[in-house]
Structures are given as structure tokens and as C-alpha cells.
């Protein structure tokens, strides 16, 4: 079953075409890597799928809802974690989780136990009452991810979720992603780290607003006769004319 579908999705800002007729589909439960150099149009494309940005032309559906006309319905079924850490720094760990649970319409009584359960899984019970601003970045990111999937969305969009942290923390983060995928949550993730691309079920690589390659990491490596995803990426990124 396809949970994300894009057909000739395009976004222009004046003369500049940030996203140029992209078409792809993501299956339920898949970890879909969305790769591309800086400025290739990844974030813009993701923002359109999340209903934050209106497409100039083309069509897209997320969990069966039209991203242009039914963007509020789309928002109910997704979780989103932005590039910039966006939990409230002046709220405690549990207060942030409670807020996001509440605004997605979770039952008031169900929220408390769910927070305890989640923090226990994360091994984070001791920090329940910690103000978010005093957490280290790695933990902030894990917490932001947990908040994004706290309401059990069908799909979660992650925009460069592991920027700026050490490899060990990234590894731990990806374990959370696998857990979520195991529970049937579709994961749509952008990243710059090619080792992370290897963890995805399928990846697409964007160059200058267009999708230039889309397949499993294994097939892509075969297709480009490369040893790893890093080489695949370099071959494609070299074609870019924008920067």
C-alpha cells in the first residue's frame, strides 16, 4: 500500500524552481531516504508533503489525503521533526510530550502512562522533570523524534534529524527509527550522511530540484558501479549546475 505519492510535484519561488516535477511513491512501513546536496530541494519537497508549503503545480497525496486541498487532514496523520530543534526549551521533558499528545487529540488520561512508558523505553525516566534546554543535543533529538511519533502517526517526516551529533548518538537515533518502522510507521528521512543512506530500504537522490535516482541502496550501488553510497552520491552530485 502506498502512503506517500507525488506526481510532478513542483515548487517555484519567483524565477527559481526549487522542486522540479518530482514523482515517486513510498510504501507503508518503509524507511525512505531522501538525499541530495544542500539546496537540492529536499526540505522544500518535504515541506510540501507536510502541508507547510503549497505546491506550485503537480499533485501529492499523503496517507490518502491531497496535500493541497486536504492539508489539515494530512497533518492529523503525520509526525514531523524539523531540521531545527523545535521542542519548547522552557518546558520540561514530560510537558513537551504532553503538549504534543494533547494537540493531536490524545485522551488526557492516556497521556500520562504513555509518557512514563516511553521514557522507560528510552531509559530516560530520570530526566522526566528536566527542562528541555538543559539536555544535550543528542538527547534533544531523540526526544524530538519521540514527540513526533508520540501520537502514533502513520508517517513521520524527519528533516536532517541527526545533524551535529557524534556517530554513537546517530547510531542510537537510528535504532529509534527502526523501532518505529517495526511498529508500522512509515519513515521519510532526509540526510547528508551516506552511512545513514545505507540503513534505508530505498533512497532517492535529488539533484537541482529533480530526482535523479531512486532504488534500494544495493541496486543503486550496482547501477552506478560504486562500492558505497558515498560514491553514488558523488557521481550524481557532480551533475549539479546550481551551485
Amino acid at each position: 500500500m502506498k502512503v506517500i505519492e507525488a506526481e510532478n510535484l513542483t515548487k517555484r519561488f519567483g524565477q527559481f524552481t526549487a522542486v522540479d516535477h518530482i514523482s515517486f511513491a513510498v510504501e507503508k512501513g518503509e524507511i525512505f531516504g531522501f538525499l541530495g546536496a544542500n539546496g537540492a530541494g529536499k526540505t522544500t519537497a518535504m515541506r510540501m508533503l507536510c502541508g507547510l508549503s503549497k505546491p506550485t503545480s503537480g499533485k501529492g497525496t499523503v496517507s490518502g489525503f491531497d496535500i493541497d486541498k486536504e492539508s489539515e487532514a494530512v497533518k492529523k496523520s503525520i509526525g514531523y521533526m524539523s531540521q531545527k530543534f523545535a521542542l519548547y526549551e522552557d518546558l520540561k521533558v514530560w510537558e513537551n510530550l504532553r503538549l504534543y499528545g494533547g494537540i493531536y487529540g490524545m485522551d488526557n488520561k492516556a497521556i500520562g502512562p504513555k509518557i512514563d512508558e516511553l521514557l522507560q523505553q528510552l531509559g530516560f525516566e530520570s530526566e522526566k522533570d528536566t527542562m528541555v534546554k538543559s539536555l544535550p543535543l543528542g538527547w534533544k533529538q531523540k526526544l524530538a523524534f519521540s514527540a513526533a511519533i508520540f501520537h502514533e502517526p502513520k508517517i513521520v517526516f524527519l528533516d536532517e534529524p541527526t545533524g551535529g551529533v557524534d556517530p554513537a548518538a546517530r547510531r542510537q537515533f537510528w535504532e529509534l527509527i527502526y523501532d518505529a518502522a517495526d511498529r508500522g510507521i512509515t519513515v521519510f528521512v532526509t540526510t547528508h550522511y551516506m552511512d545513514e543512506a545505507e540503513y534505508c530500504n530505498r533512497v532517492s537522490i535529488m539533484v537541482d530540484g529533480r530526482i535523479e535516482a531512486l532504488d534500494t541502496p544495493k541496486n543503486l550501488k550496482k547501477q552506478f558501479e560504486a562500492e558505497n553510497m558515498d560514491q553514488v552520491f558523488h557521481q550524481l552530485a557532480r551533475r549539479a549546475k546550481r551551485n
Binding site: 507536510c50 502541508g51 507547510l52 489539515e72 497533518k75 492529523k76 503525520i78 514531523y80 524539523s82 531545527k84 530543534f85 523545535a86 521542542l87 519548547y88 526549551e89 504534543y100 494537540i103 493531536y104 487529540g105
Partner: peptide, 13 residues
Amino acid sequence: ENGTIEQMNVTPV
């Protein structure tokens, strides 16, 4: 400025 409003804008609020 903090980017938290964007997080709010992807919710059904």
C-alpha cells in the same frame, strides 16, 4: 525565530 511555530503548523491545531 525559535522554529517552534513551524512544529505547531504541522499539527492539526
